[in-house]
Structures are given as structure tokens and as C-alpha cells.
């Protein structure tokens, strides 16, 4: 009788662990960050994008008039999503005269099933489009595919698709070297850095190769350091597309410093803008904490 009781015990306890071991799971969790991996789950990630449009759980409309391009320009390539980031992306519509209207813009994530449709009623061959990437995205790279629906002379047709890719890098810390290499586009890189927990002066070193670049550092929602004129809190370094001409491009190594208090904020945002009209460039940025 005793052996039966023991067998029963081990059978039941074994069954308990068996039930636990048989749970169905999809993928191994790689990070304890909150959010979605944009590479593994593009279908989910696309639904998290914030824009004033409608999500459709079906593929983007096929086809497009190959004569008409929808070419993105002036967007950042590297963005840090520790906070939600709104990405302005401008598009030029090629080979069209002024007798057209952009009816709507369609976009999806590379590898995703569904897509978004955003209404537009604008007659211009440059469309500035904003899509907000929530901070609930893990580190990784992803690409947005766009096409526009054009109304011209009573006809409707899609443009050729355009594509922009972004990198959401792992967080960088004080002392790490930020490095960027840009070929033609994009012209703006935005990165975030976590600083130390000590109060005191903080020194920022930067340097550009090939062509001069502009550097701006934002802390506590204010620009605190710049290689040019300090910007207002709501501004983003941009070239002339929105009427804001920036200066302060420097080619050689330089440094600036500011007083830093970790109790206010331990996070800075670094903007590196390549020279308006320049081709390629390389840049480095280092922060030296107290």
C-alpha cells in the first residue's frame, strides 16, 4: 500500500510539472523591455503606429503608375524610442504638373499584412507626412513602405511605392561613442543618451568628417547646447523645406559644456543634421559626465 501511495504522489506531482511544460509558446523572450519586436512581429507593430487614418487588416493596394514616383526625403534614419517619436517624412511626387491632388497616403511596415490609409487633400508636389512611432517598440530595424493615391484630370492612380528605413538602437550611456555615417539621405539623426547620476558640468565632444554637420543637444525639453544658434523647444533642426534655415555647421572637432542635474532628467536627445545639400558625411559624438 505504501508503494502505491508513493507512486500516486510522484505521478500527480509529475503531472503538475508536465502541464506546465506543455504550454504553447511562440518565441523566446529576448528582452524585458516593454513593447514589440519590430522584426519578429511586424503585423503587430504596424497596428501600434499613431496617425490620423484608418488601419485595414489587408494588404496595401497593388499596382501603381511607374511613371510617378513617391520619393521620401528629409527624415531621420536613427531614432531612439525611449520616448514616443513623431517622424516627419517629406515626399516629392515626380512627373506631375500642378493639376493633381494627393487623395490619400497608404503605408505599411515591411513584412506586415495590414496597412494604413491617411486622407490628404493637398495640391503640392511635396507632401510632409507625420507618423508617430510609439515607445512600445523594442530595438531593431524596420522599414515603412508608402504609396500615394493621386487624383488628376478625373482619374485616380497610385504612385510607385517609396520606402524609408529606421533603426531603433539599444540605449547608449554617458561615455559611449555615437557614430553616424550618412550617404545622401537621410539628413537628420536623432539619438537618446542616458547620463550619470552625478551632478556637475557635462562636456559634449563632436566631430564631423567629409562635410560639416550641425549638432544640437536637448535636455529637459530644452535645447541646451548647439554648434549653432540655440533652437526653441518646439523646433527641430531642418533645412529650408519648412522655411527654417539652419546654421552652425562645423567640420572640425569641437566641444561645448553645460551644467547638469540628474534630479531633473538623466536623458538627453542628440540631433545631428548634415549640411543642407551636402552628399555624404560621418560624425561622432561623446558625452563626458561628471
Amino acid at each position: 500500500m505504501a508503494s502505491i501511495k508513493k507512486a500516486l504522489l510522484f505521478f500527480l506531482l509529475g503531472g503538475l510539472f508536465f502541464i506546465e511544460g506543455c504550454k504553447k509558446v511562440d518565441l523566446e523572450l529576448e528582452s524585458t523591455e516593454l513593447g514589440i519586436d519590430p522584426i519578429q512581429h511586424p503585423d503587430v507593430f504596424v497596428k501600434l503606429l499613431q496617425t490620423r487614418g484608418r488601419y485595414y487588416d489587408k494588404p496595401m493596394p497593388q499596382g501603381g503608375d511607374t511613371s510617378f514616383g513617391f520619393l521620401p526625403f528629409d527624415y531621420p534614419d536613427v531614432i531612439d524610442f525611449q520616448k514616443t517619436v513623431e517622424i516627419p517624412i517629406s515626399f516629392r511626387i515626380q512627373n506631375l504638373n500642378n493639376l493633381f491632388t494627393v487623395d490619400s497616403v497608404f503605408f505599411s511596415i515591411d513584412g506586415s499584412f495590414g496597412h494604413w490609409a491617411v486622407p490628404f487633400t493637398r495640391s503640392a508636389n511635396v507632401v510632409t507626412f507625420r507618423v508617430l512611432i510609439p515607445n512600445t517598440i523594442r530595438n531593431g530595424e524596420f522599414c515603412l513602405q508608402f504609396k500615394a493615391l493621386i487624383k488628376a484630370a478625373g482619374n485616380r492612380f497610385f504612385t510607385k511605392p517609396g520606402k524609408v528605413c529606421f533603426i531603433n538602437p539599444p540605449p547608449v550611456f554617458c561615455g559611449d561613442t555615437l557614430y553616424g555615417r550618412v550617404v545622401v539621405t537621410p539628413i537628420l539623426s536623432i539619438r537618446k543618451m542616458i547620463l550619470s547620476d552625478k551632478k556637475g558640468p557635462i562636456i559634449f565632444n563632436w566631430g564631423s568628417g567629409t562635410n560639416a554637420d550641425r549638432f544640437d543637444v536637448k535636455w529637459n525639453n530644452k535645447f541646451v547646447v548647439s554648434s549653432g544658434t540655440l533652437l526653441e523647444p518646439g523646433q527641430v533642426p531642418r533645412c529650408t523645406s519648412d522655411g527654417f534655415i539652419i546654421t552652425g555647421f562645423r567640420r572640425t572637432k569641437d566641444y561645448e559644456w553645460t551644467e547638469y542635474d540628474p534630479s531633473i532628467s538623466r536623458e538627453i536627445t542628440i540631433f545631428c543634421h548634415k549640411g543642407c545639400g551636402d552628399g555624404s558625411t560621418e560624425w561622432r559624438f561623446i558625452a563626458k559626465c561628471p
Partner: peptide, 13 residues
């Protein structure tokens, strides 16, 4: 829209 994702916890995390 609704999505449900299951991830395995391992020694990686």
C-alpha cells in the same frame, strides 16, 4: 484589432 503574443521565458532574460 486585437493581437495575442506568447513568448517563452528562458535564461536569456
Amino acid at each position: 484589432e486585437k493581437e495575442v503574443l506568447d513568448h517563452e521565458l528562458s535564461g536569456k532574460t
